[in-house]
Every structure is written in C-alpha cells, then in structure tokens.
C-alpha cells in the first residue's frame, strides 16, 4: 500500500482511492456484472474516447483557457474522415481528419491568443460554426464508411486489449512527453501559471497558447476517428456531450479552470472515475437523465473539493513559513499556494 502511494502525489492517491471505492460499491450493488472481466472491457472502451478528449482539454485548461468546441470538432473530424475514407483510403482519411482538427485548433488558438477573444466566446462560436460546417459537408446526413479495416481504429481489439484502450495509451504516452519532457509543455504550464512572468522571460506566449489549442483539437479529431470506427459513420453530432464530460473529467483530476495546474495522471484517473460513475450507473439500470444530473453534481463537487484543498494547503504553507522565520508572511495571503510535491512527473 505504502509503496504504491508513496510515490504518488496526494491528490492522485485520493483519486485512486475514490476510484477503487466506487468500483467496490458497484461490485457490491451488482456482483454478477462487476465481478467479470467483460465489464472492465466495456468500461475500457467507454473510457478510451473520453480519455483522448480530456487529455486534449487538459492542455487548454492548463494554458489558462478551455475548449467547448471539442464535441463539435469530434463530429467535424468524423465527417471529414467518412467523406474521404472510401475514396482515398483509411490512412489518408485519418490524416485529413487530423489536419481538420489541427485547423480547428489553429483558428481557436489564433482567435484566443492573437485576437484576444475570450476562450468561452471563441470556442462557443467555433462549436456552432463546426456543427453547421459538418452538416453542410454531409448534407445533414450521416456518412457511411464501408472499408472493413475501419474497425481497427476503435471497434475491435488489438490483441488482448480493446483498440480504444490502445489508442488512449498511445495518446497518454504522447501527452506525457509533451507535458513533462518538452519545453513546449513547460511553457504551457508557465503561461497558465503566470502569463506576465512567461512574457517577461521572452517566451512567445501566443505561439504556445495556440499550440495548446491545436493539441486539444487534434486529440478531439482522434476521438472523432475512434467514434466513427465504432459506429461506421461520420456525423456532426457524434461527440455530443463530450465538451462537458471532458472538462468535468479534467477538473475532477485536478486541472484548474484558470490555468497552470493539472497533471496527466490525475486527469487520467479523473476520466476513469467519471466513466465508472456514469457507465456503472447505466449498467445497474439508472436512467440516462439521472446520469446527466449526476455528472453535473459531480463536476461542481470536484471544483469545490479542489478549492478546499487549496485553502488547506494555504494555511499549511503559512505555518511552514512561520517556522522558517516568518519572512514574507504578510504577503502570504496574496500568493496562491501550490499543491503536491515538486518531483512528480505524472
């Protein structure tokens, strides 16, 4: 136990406990279903798509904004994929879908970082624009894909694991490198943490902010391909609901609205918690409407919890500082405290 949790930051340990407890509760509630590996597989399939979108969303959150156009981007990318897959082949179709996602992110990023439009307004506008564009391209219908190899992008298994899980693992690896090993990731955190400090350090702030939105939208496009593979059509409304779910999962996992804060492992566990909660409730027979209500409540609770955690830390920091000689105590309340130890590359 200690060996496992010793290496984890506090928040992630707590989230993991919540996840396990939640699963145990469902297991007790419905032992036949939750005891089997089939359920784990179903949950994995469900979680994969949300994982990909939420990790993208995390980039937008960390840089200090958010992206509510992700669901529309999922639909748009799936439409672009479906329109081209049969004519040019699956791989070119995927590449076009990713390029479409990158384009969406580029526009979002430029509008937000260069034209200084509020992220909410910019991505809300993008949301409605993309729904219109997707329907325009597909004449308002869903676009079928007939290539049998389509299933490899999310409908079938890669050996022992579901394809969605495989893709999610790849995305986690890529995101890990971005967030924890690349200068670009560091700058995304720096900009979200203190824009002015980043600017004075000579960082081209707008460029990295745009990058965060491009990353976000490209991952939404990946999710679009995954969903299209599962339902064998491309459609504007394919990702419906993912904007809220991705923000909720990221926030549950410790990403802060306002920027600078959030770790990949936390967000990944946040996705699993949200998936187990919603899918678990579905499996035990709770209605969809009740599940929607639950998601809303959980989102607010997660934010409240995160804020409480900060206040606790804040007084802790004050106490530590006092012990260290009291220097700077007066300005203490002005400064926001940080959470977690420093050396957690997770």
């Amino acid at each position: 136990m200690r060996a496992l949790f010793g290496r984890l930051p506090r928040l992630e340990s707590q989230l993991l406990v919540v996840l396990v407890l939640m699963y145990v509760v469902f297991w007790i509630w419905s032992p036949d279903v939750f005891g089997g590996s089939d359920t784990l597989e179903i949950l994995g399939r469900q979680a994969g798509v949300l994982m990909v979108v939420a990790i993208g969303q995390m980039a937008a959150l960390v840089v200090g904004g958010f992206d509510i156009s992700v669901a529309a981007t999922v639909g748009f990318a799936s439409t672009v994929f479906a329109l081209n897959a049969d004519d040019y082949g699956l791989v070119p179709g995927v590449l076009l879908a990713l390029a479409a996602g990158a384009g969406v992110g580029l526009v979002n990023g430029i509008v937000i970082a260069r034209l200084k439009v509020n992220a909410f307004v910019a991505t809300l506008a993008m949301l409605t624009f993309l729904i219109g564009l997707s329907n325009e391209l597909s004449n308002g219908a869903s676009v079928p894909i007939s290539d049998p190899n389509l299933k490899w992008f999310g409908a079938t298994d890669w050996g022992p694991i579901p394809a969605t899980v495989g893709i999610a693992v790849i995305v986690i690896a890529v995101a890990y490198i971005l967030f924890n090993r690349l200068r670009a990731g560091l700058y995304i955190y720096a900009i979200g943490g203190s824009r002015e400090t980043a600017r004075l350090s000579g960082i081209p702030v707008a460029r990295y902010e745009i990058l965060a939105y491009v990353f976000c939208s490209m991952l939404a496009a990946v999710a679009g391909v995954m969903l299209a593979s599962r339902v064998t059509v491309g459609q504007a409304s394919l990702g419906a609901g993912l904007e809220l779910e991705s923000i909720a999962a990221a926030v549950i996992g410790g990403a802060a609205i306002g920027g600078g804060r959030g770790r990949l492992l936390g967000v990944a566990i946040g996705v699993l918690i949200l998936t187990v909660l919603t899918s678990g409730l579905e499996i035990v027979g709770v209605s969809e409407f009740t599940r929607q209500m639950t998601t809303g409540v959980v989102l607010v609770l997660a934010v409240v919890f995160n804020q409480r955690r900060n206040i606790a830390d804040w007084s802790l920091v004050r106490r530590l500082r006092r012990r260290g000689g009291g220097g700077g105590g007066q300005a203490g309340p002005m400064r926001e405290a940080a959470d977690g130890p420093a050396n957690d590359d997770v």
């Binding site: 200068r183 560091l186 050396n343």
Partner: peptide, 13 residues
C-alpha cells in the same frame, strides 16, 4: 531558467 530551455526538458526536475 524560464525562456532558456532546450527543446527537451523535464518539467518538474
């Protein structure tokens, strides 16, 4: 070090 990093850096170390 902000602004001086090489392309590959560890964020927390």
């Amino acid at each position: 070090l902000l602004g001086l990093e090489r392309p590959f850096v560890r964020r927390s170390r």
